[in-house]
Design a binder for these strands. Structure first.
Lengths: 211, 211
DNA sequence: TAGATTGTTAATCGATTAACAATC
DNA sequence: TAGATTGTTAATCGATTAACAATC
């Protein structure tokens, strides 16, 4: 019950996201030389309850010392192992429009241990350009290049009309994790994990709260 | 109980997001000439249950015809009224780095009835540039310009070190809806609504699912 | 009318919070 | 040891799903 792999089905996505938030916060504490943190302190920083912090961690084992709390560096290391971010994660991006290009040079990704290893587009005017040291390649060569580069995660930022077709091709290349920016539900088999980032929906739902 | 304004506190954010998804799906159906849709069909398109569709709508009133279903155009109009997207929403963006610039030209926003009316940066090399017809202005003039432009929503895409300060200034200009791309919890009063889009966390939590 | 599908209530499921014995 | 905080169980809360009478 210690190993994350047993939990693929049972641990809710919301818990996983919070684990990543804990890891980030712990990192900042580490950089500030903090040697000790309680679930109470960590929770305060994130606007949640201490019980939730402890409950989330309990999915994966015991990481604290009763009466003391947690050691930031230690806990962060364990969270990174659980999340699988204790190694470099190799990312390919499909679609080098404005959004794709911005993601390609997003410094937040590099800081967190992600590395772009390939970028694709179908537009001749974009192919060959180099952004953040990555050459934009012809999407016709997707399969050949992806299979050679050991890609872990694909980011999808293509026009909606191409999204499903590109997804199918990615999956044939054994990609089973996709971060999808296309406002469309992708049809994939159960072993493929898709996270949706829907920028328009975020804005639209905000407008509900305008006084 | 019909008016969305009464529900600001009681309707969960997840419901509001689904309403926006319903509106989008209904729009596509409309464009395809579909004159009638059941909660079952709508739910299938979105991968949820028909009961959830009906329950979500029930927060705001009765929109369907028993034995018949819903008229896409009609329901979409009502959802847009509830969401407040039946008018042009005016958006300002603070931070014109790669991400900011990409958002500024993101066509998905225009399609949904959002309009950028101002963009800001502190970098002299960016100030004065025009992107998507919007001139990037000196952030020193934030207050003056925002107050003149009736901004509804601000998008935050500045470096983490500036995020809280910029937020405080936006709120002083009566902005009470912020779409925040900075990986940091913003401190705001209760009447201000912040939606977080945390790109690094999305990627990190995906890596958990890598087989 | 018969069939279909709504709106709504009740049942279920899951996630969050509270409480506390264990323990450093 | 006394105080603090964990890990975990039980209680609460909220959201999702099922069921069905109402009704077009």
């Amino acid at each position: 019950m210690q190993n994350s792999k047993n939990h693929l089905k049972t641990v809710p996505k919301s818990v996983i996201k919070r684990l990543a938030l804990y890891a980030r916060t712990l990192h900042r504490m580490e950089l500030n030389g903090i040697m000790r943190v309680s679930s109470k302190t960590l929770a305060e920083r994130l606007g949640i309850t201490p019980a939730q912090v402890r409950k989330d961690l309990a999915h994966f084992g015991q990481f604290g010392v009763p009466g003391f709390g947690y050691r930031p560096g230690e806990l962060r290391e364990k969270l990174r192992k659980i999340l699988g971010t204790d190694r470099m994660i190799r990312v390919a991006i499909v679609g080098a429009g404005n959004l794709g290009k911005a993601l390609l040079s997003y410094v937040g990704f590099r800081a967190q241990g992600f590395k772009f290893v390939a970028a694709f587009d179908s537009d001749q005017r974009k192919i060959g350009h180099i952004i953040n040291n990555i050459k934009i390649q012809n999407i016709d060569n997707l399969e050949k290049i992806i299979l050679g580069k050991k890609v872990d995660i694909a980011i999808l930022a293509v026009p909606a009309s191409k999204a499903q077709e590109v997804t199918d091709r990615l999956i044939k290349c054994n990609i089973n994790a996709i971060l999808n920016f296309v406002p469309l539900r992708l049809i994939v088999s159960d072993n493929v994990k898709v996270h949706y980032v829907d920028l328009a929906i975020e804005l639209e739902s905000l407008s509900f709260y305008l006084r």
